[in-house]
Design a protein around this nucleic acid. Structure first.
Lengths: 242, 242
DNA sequence: CGGTTCTTTGACGAGATTCAATGCCGGTGG
DNA sequence: CCACCGGCATTGAATCTCGTCAAAGAACCG
């Protein structure tokens, strides 16, 4: 069992980044039963109303959490990148209160909830890491309430992109100067509470101001300090756990 | 030490509502060191940027979590009522990423974070209750992202009031037919991403439609099914842990 | 290539903000 | 006891941001 190719390696790396683990912790983590899966773009990973029995680790690709309004409108409440645990938010809840969907083709690892709960209680360091991860997600939700509730459209779009870039860069998925951007403008709209048309206009303005450059699927920030300023972006809410 | 007058009784009640505790669990919980405090309305309980060493239980009164935009705008991201634990969101984080303020005169109990972390790890039932409580708060944040991002002003205000009423009623603070409402219209605006002026207009419409009746500090719902419908309110996201 | 999805742009309209003025209520002090 | 004051609620008018509708162009996929 070479840990370098172990399917749970991404989970181990994630937890290691958050907490200091003993040998025993690491062995226990890698011993958790699991199954590997693949999924196409735009499929449900978790569906609102489900009773989740497994917890999902995103190994490759991009995903988004979302909720539906009764009028059919969709609100994305966070996005996720390779290495993220998608389901800690439901670890101790009966029913899923939101959905998670793949935004690209994705590679997943599924782990039994029960096994993760046991792991967390028997290995406090791992338990703490899970806590921290869930709390950082919650902090991101709070920031999104602020983003959607109190910032104007341009700032809002820029802020959402800043967060994406900072988290992606921390995960080694690209650089500020050139980052894969796997969202349609409609999805950016669903994340910012705007229409796709208006997102397009805001991206145009940010482009015209020389802050960013866009080619299909790729975002390049030309002036990172200026872009962060336009976004009123302050990374403190990510608790450096990005 | 009569548990009925014990300062930690509200915490015990809260945890009991969420998880089943053993005798030993309850004894341990009541043995946590703590100090009782009072605070005036509109004071900081937790301040963004602080390194919190104590966790706060709201025993009496009302409080709100909020974040500031750089332009000075304020966004309330959740409100809290008697019995709520205010600080679990920072239990495993270094720095507070948001503030909590009293909205009325309030009675508080302060508990050392370390003691709570130990309590949670040594008493799994209590640990699970804390997890669940934190996850329900996170679920509420997600619903607020949806509320602020995708619902029109009237629905938004109604939804925010519905949540307040359901949670307050569950905590025994009043009934749908008559509930203390300790918010100014400005605060409702800060919670819904609207201006106080527009909140006023929406409340007027809801009143004119015969759904609610308002007297200073008190909200009466005249048509609860109709009001919930106007709010597109579905309590599932509260996970019955209201 | 042909169809589909995504992006882009313009014209128009609706919903929310802003500004401003008035009224109401509770508290305070003469 | 009542006049005054400050905070909050209420309302109207003008303005502006963002949404809606529509059409054309660009990129992607089989």
């Amino acid at each position: 069992m070479h840990s370098i190719t172990h399917p749970l390696q991404p989970l181990l790396s994630k937890v290691r980044r958050i907490a200091r683990l003993s040998e025993a912790d690491e062995r226990a983590l890698l011993a958790v039963p699991h199954r590997v899966g693949r999924i196409d773009a735009n499929r449900y990973i978790i569906r609102e109303g489900d009773v989740p029995r497994e917890c999902c680790l995103l190994v490759e690709g991009y995903a988004a959490r979302s909720k539906l309004a009764t009028d059919g409108g969709r609100q994305i409440v966070s996005f996720h990148i390779a290495g993220d645990i998608l389901d800690l938010q439901h670890l101790f809840l009966e029913r899923a209160d939101h959905s998670v969907q793949s935004m690209t083709d994705a590679k997943l690892v599924w782990l039994p909830m029960v096994a993760l709960r046991d792991l967390a209680s028997e290995h406090p360091a791992i338990g703490t890491a899970f806590w921290r991860d869930a709390l950082v997600d919650a902090s991101i939700f709070r920031e999104w309430v602020l983003n959607v509730g109190r910032r104007d459209a341009k700032t809002r779009v820029a802020h959402m992109l800043c967060e994406f870039i900072v988290r992606s860069e921390a995960a080694g998925l690209g650089t500020v100067e050139s980052m894969r951007l796997p969202f349609t403008q409609e999805q950016i709209g669903d994340a910012t509470g705007l229409t796709a048309v208006h997102v397009n206009r805001m991206l145009r303005e940010l482009t015209d101001e020389g802050l960013i450059e866009r080619t299909p699927g790729v975002l390049r920030v030309l002036d990172w300090p200026g872009f962060k300023r336009a976004a009123t972006f302050n990374a403190a809410y990510l608790h450096a756990a990005a």
